[in-house]
């Protein structure tokens, strides 16, 4: 078993400080984690207190982590002709790798720092944000677990398996291909859920929307309880409107793994990929 490598971004920051004392307002710290061919499948875990996470795909094998700390609202860079020496008010980026599992954290408590992570196409993700930022993922295939407290979760053109939650933001997911054997789950308290799925995907769905409507252009065949009323006449954008007490179960394309959609105050839209 390979020994974990720890890359302290503080070193990077120190280097920046030495060679470029007059840093720009937003100075990204950058860490490149090479792929271990002997390791397991690639998994990236990232969690942030303040700020958002963006995950992009590239054709290379490395994982590139960039953190940018906003020196939010701090005064100008010079005073009485002196230049400010920026101490490490940076993101406190901390990247750790063990057997292709990459842990990314930032220690900055007060300042907002945004993470941009560039990964190979086949990468599993576990992302967590607390305040002031959105989670955005584009084009990744794998198991994606995204959890946000106050921001949005947006997953564009992803494939595989998704578990997504935001407490106060919306959950917007578009899946190109789904792992046919695994359940998925999308939930939010105050936001909307908007999920686009391949036309031929199969699932047993559980839908719960206490205070909002549910729309879908899939034919959802209702299960045993409770009895929803489908109103084709009341269609919005050519979609069926499904009315029910506050939850329903049903099947799409004959049934498959369990897909759960839960929102308390928002609306649910389940779209067919065109």
């Amino acid at each position: 078993m390979s020994k974990p490598i720890v890359i302290s971004a503080a070193l990077t920051a120190a280097a920046l400080l030495t060679f470029a004392p007059a840093r720009a307002q937003e100075s990204p710290e950058r860490v490149v984690v090479p792929y271990r061919s002997s390791g397991g499948p690639r998994i990236v875990h990232a969690s942030l207190m303040n700020g958002g996470i963006t995950v992009k795909r590239h054709d290379g094998q490395d994982v590139i982590v960039e953190a940018s700390a906003h020196s939010g609202g701090r005064p100008a860079h010079s005073r009485d002709g002196m230049k400010r020496l920026d101490l490490n008010h940076g993101s406190g980026l901390d990247v750790e790798e063990d057997n292709n599992v990459i842990e990314i954290k930032t220690n900055a408590m007060e300042e907002e720092s945004n993470l941009v992570i560039t990964v190979p196409a086949n990468t599993s993700l576990k992302l967590k944000c607390l305040n002031g930022g959105d989670i955005l993922v584009d084009g990744v295939t794998g198991e994606i677990d995204a959890n946000n407290l106050n921001g949005k979760v947006t997953l564009n053109h992803v494939s595989g398996n998704v578990i997504a939650h935001s407490l106060n933001g919306s959950v917007i997911v578009s899946l190109d291909r789904v792992d046919a054997s695994k359940p998925m789950s999308f939930s939010t308290l105050n936001g909307d859920i908007d999920v686009t799925l391949p036309a031929d995907f199969r699932a047993n769905v559980k839908i719960k929307a206490d205070n909002g409507d549910v729309f879908s252009d899939f034919e959802v065949k209702p299960g045993a309880n409770p009895h929803p009323v489908t109103e084709p006449g009341d269609a919005k954008n050519g979609k069926y409107k499904i009315r029910f007490d506050n939850s329903m179960t049903g099947t799409i394309n004959g049934g498959g793994p369990e897909f759960t959609f839960t929102t308390f105050n928002g609306e649910i839209r389940i779209r067919k990929r065109k």
Partner: peptide, 11 residues
């Protein structure tokens, strides 16, 4: 640790 797993477990 995952909210969605907890939700499903309640169910």
């Amino acid at each position: 640790p995952n909210v969605n797993v907890r939700l499903s477990a309640v169910d």
